[in-house]
Amino acid sequence: MIDRTPAKGVSLFSLLLLPLLLGRVPVLEAHESLELLMPDAPPLTMVNQGDRHGIVGDVVLRALKKAGYASELRTLPWARAQKYALEKDSVLLAPLSRTPEREDRYTWIAPIMQMDRAFFSLEHKVSTFDEARQRFKTIAVGLGSAQEEILRSKGFAPEQIYPIKIGENPAQLLLKGRVDAWFNGVQESRYIWQRVSSRPLLMSPPMVSHELYLACSKVCDAEVVTDVAKAIEAMRRDGYIEKVKDRYLNNDPLDKTGSL
């Protein structure tokens, strides 16, 4: 018979301490790095501006850090990024509009800011979706964006919708006369336009509004969801999110430390 009594001179305390010394106590292990997918869509998210990551990017990265999670920032074409998160577990996406079409596909961690969407044109100012559908032959939208979903749901013909990679390209197409209008977020469009042209840009009234969220794969670690949501809510209460919005939208860059 095998003697399972602890050897003489080895205390029970030492046996209990051994797993800790070997680093094998799961509750004390460091969090794994989380994949965070963001498009390059200033001023909401930025991926090539050093420590500046845009309004949503700065908020999300700070929230992850405050919650104790390391993150691996990646940039993919936005339609591909959404598909990637659908196929994987615990992949973060920001910013993602919480639309009816997306509601059951993702885990919605926390809202960051509201985004109004409008039509932009150099020649015509429309007031309704019906007017836009009759007036504009081609409308640029971000590929894989909520704007693309919205126009399809409002009955715009496929040939009227011109999806293109998210970024400055739609503004350039409008300038060159290759599209009649641009349907996009108000804050983002104004930010981009003032960097590409001084021509007056005609804007419709806001046509639709959604909250921009930090989202996650449908299967997402519950602890991550709770911890990061709490961190974002704390940043909302202490005014940090509004300060970040003011800095980017007023073109007042953060200092070298990234403080506000």
Score class of each variant (00 low, 15 high):
Q172N: 10
L201Q: 03
W193T: 03
P158N: 12
Y191R: 03
K176P: 04
Q172T: 10
I232T: 07
G155T: 12
L175P: 00
K245H: 08
S189T: 14
E211Q: 15
G167A: 07
R178I: 12
K154D: 08
L214Y: 03
P158Q: 14
L212T: 03
Q160C: 15
A157K: 13
R195M: 01
Q172F: 15
R195N: 04
A215V: 09
L202S: 00
P205R: 06
V224P: 00
K154V: 10
Q147D: 05
S145A: 06
I241N: 05
A215L: 08
N251G: 10
T226Q: 14
L174Y: 01
E149N: 00
A181C: 11
V196S: 00
V141F: 07
L202W: 00
R199W: 05
A231Y: 12
R237V: 15
R247M: 09
S204G: 06
S209G: 13
M203F: 08
I241L: 07
V179E: 00
L143P: 02
F156H: 10
E211A: 15
N169P: 04
G144P: 00
S198Q: 04
Y248W: 10
P163F: 06
L202M: 01
Y240G: 05
P206W: 07
D180L: 06
E149P: 00
V179F: 03
P158K: 14
G167S: 03
E211T: 14
V141H: 06
P206R: 08
E159W: 10
S217L: 15
D180T: 08
L151A: 09
V224M: 03
I166G: 12
L173Y: 04
E168N: 14
N184M: 05
G177I: 10
E148L: 02
I161Q: 14
